[in-house]
């Protein structure tokens, strides 16, 4: 039950893009077509899950025992960068089909703040390993959902007439604002749900 609330909170209530403002660059950059947006979301899901599972033991196994918590940022970004490279090489060799679908997005993901953000968040929220795994998966699904919805709307706005000054980024940002407003409708759902379930 606890996990269901965690999942719903991460996907809808605290959506990583529309409520926490992480991963805005790919959100604005790779959202012109629905299928590209979906693949980008899958690539993020893949890397985010692995990154969280790798950084979590590093934090509690190496950084905490030696009192090196302040090195978190440096260690994490290096681990994530190395990880993305490794994943890229392995995928290229063993799963060429998956690589050709995700390949172009992988280098972009190193500088995607959602990955580092989630890896730091699970430490800040003091989640255990199971909770961290669920949280990372749900957050990535929330990212994918936001990307796909946004791309769908953008495909429509691309063929409509917009005022000259609003073309391009401004209209995209405005769309994102309206989408964020729609997601605000979910606020409080997590608390209501945990009250209804008696947690």
């Amino acid at each position: 039950m606890e996990y269901i609330i965690l999942i719903i909170t991460a996907i809808f209530v605290n959506n990583i893009v529309l409520a926490q403002f992480l991963g805005i660059c790919p959100f604005l950059g790779v959202s012109k077509k629905v299928d590209t947006a979906g693949w980008m979301g899958m690539a993020v899901l893949f890397v985010m899950l692995i990154a969280t599972l790798v950084t979590y033991p590093i934090y509690y196994g190496i950084l905490v025992p030696y009192n090196l918590q302040f090195m978190q940022t440096i260690v994490y970004i290096l681990v994530i960068a190395a990880l993305v490279q490794t994943v890229e090489i392995i995928l290229k060799k063993s799963m060429p089909a998956l690589y050709s679908a995700l390949g172009v997005f992988l280098p972009l993901i190193t500088t995607n703040c959602t990955i580092l953000g989630v890896a730091i968040n699970v430490i800040n929220f003091e989640y255990n390993l199971a909770q961290s795994t669920v949280y990372a998966t749900a957050t990535a699904l929330g990212f994918t959902l936001a990307m796909v919805l946004f791309a769908g709307i953008r495909e429509q706005t691309a063929i409509t007439k917009t005022p000259k000054g609003m073309e391009g980024t401004p209209i995209a940002l405005l769309t994102a604002g309206l989408l964020a407003m729609a997601f605000m409708g979910f606020s409080g759902v997590d608390k209501g749900l945990s009250a209804a379930l008696g947690l």
Partner: peptide
């Protein structure tokens, strides 16, 4: 002040 306002 909330999220949508930032985008708008």
């Amino acid at each position: 002040v909330l999220a949508p306002g930032a985008f708008i």
